[in-house]
Simulated scan of single mutants.
Amino acid sequence: MPYTDSPHPVHIDASLAGFSECHHDFVAQLHSALYLPELVEAAAKARVMANDLLKMFGHGVSRHHAEEENELFPAVLRAAESGPEFDKVRAMVDQLVGEHRDMEARWAQLQPEVEAVARGEVRAMDAALIQDMVQHFFAHAHFEEEHFLPLAQKVLGRDSESMAALGHALHQRHRQQEAADA
C-alpha cells in the first residue's frame, strides 16, 4: 500500500510502486529512530552503573572483606568464651570467609563483562551470572546482619576493651588506606 495521508486509497502504477515502498521503509526506520535518544541514555546509565560496580568490588567490597577477616573476625574469636560460643563463632567465621572467596570467584567471572560495559562496548551480558552473584551476596549480607553481627555485639559487648581495640584497629586501617589512596 502506498504511503499517503489521504483517507482514500490511491492507486500507484507499478513503475512508481518502488518509490512508495522506499517511503514505507524510510518511515519505519525513522519511527524506530525516535527511540534512539532513550537507548543512548540507557547505554550511558549502563556505563555509569558498570563503573560504580567496578569501584565497589575493587575498593569497597575487598576492603570490607579484609577488615572483617583481619580485624572483626579475629576480635570476636579472641573474645568468645571457650566451648559452644567459640565453636559457634568459629563455624560462622569459617562460613563467612568461605562466602567471601565464593563472591570473589563469582566477581572474577563477571568482571570482564562489566569492564566492557564500562568502556562503552555493546555486548550481551550473562544475566544468570549477575542474578546468581546478587542472590549470593544478599544471602551473605543477610546472614551477617541477622546472625553474626548480633553475636559479635554480644561477645565484644561483654568487654569494653575488646570493642575499643576493634574500633582503634579499624580507625588505624582506615587512616592507612586513606594515605595509600592519596
Rank of each mutant, 00 (worst) to 15 (best):
residue 170 L to N: 04
residue 68 E to S: 02
residue 143 F to Q: 04
residue 105 A to S: 04
residue 93 V to N: 00
residue 26 F to D: 13
residue 112 P to E: 05
residue 93 V to D: 00
residue 22 C to W: 14
residue 36 L to V: 03
residue 32 S to V: 06
residue 47 R to E: 12
residue 173 R to I: 04
residue 117 V to E: 03
residue 152 A to T: 05
residue 151 L to W: 05
residue 148 F to C: 13
residue 57 F to M: 14
residue 182 A to Y: 00
residue 172 Q to M: 15
residue 173 R to T: 02
residue 173 R to Y: 11
residue 44 A to W: 11
residue 118 A to V: 10
residue 137 F to C: 01
residue 41 E to S: 08
residue 122 V to T: 12
residue 53 L to A: 13
residue 18 G to Q: 06
residue 58 G to P: 00
residue 40 V to I: 15
residue 37 P to Q: 01
residue 170 L to W: 08
residue 12 I to S: 05
residue 98 G to L: 04
residue 139 A to S: 06
residue 48 V to D: 12
residue 6 S to L: 13
residue 116 A to D: 05
residue 64 H to L: 02
residue 51 N to D: 12
residue 48 V to Y: 15
residue 78 R to C: 08
residue 66 A to Y: 07
residue 59 H to V: 07
residue 85 E to C: 05
residue 31 H to R: 10
residue 85 E to K: 04
residue 4 T to L: 02
residue 168 H to L: 07
residue 158 R to L: 08
residue 107 W to Q: 03
residue 8 H to Q: 10
residue 117 V to L: 09
residue 127 A to K: 15
residue 64 H to Q: 03
residue 79 A to I: 01
residue 130 I to V: 14
residue 169 A to F: 08
residue 56 M to V: 02
residue 7 P to W: 06
residue 101 R to Q: 15
residue 137 F to D: 03
residue 74 P to E: 01
residue 169 A to H: 01
residue 126 D to Y: 10
residue 83 G to S: 01
residue 141 A to E: 13
residue 39 L to G: 08
residue 20 S to A: 11
residue 107 W to S: 00
residue 165 A to F: 11
residue 6 S to V: 12
residue 88 K to H: 04
residue 131 Q to E: 11
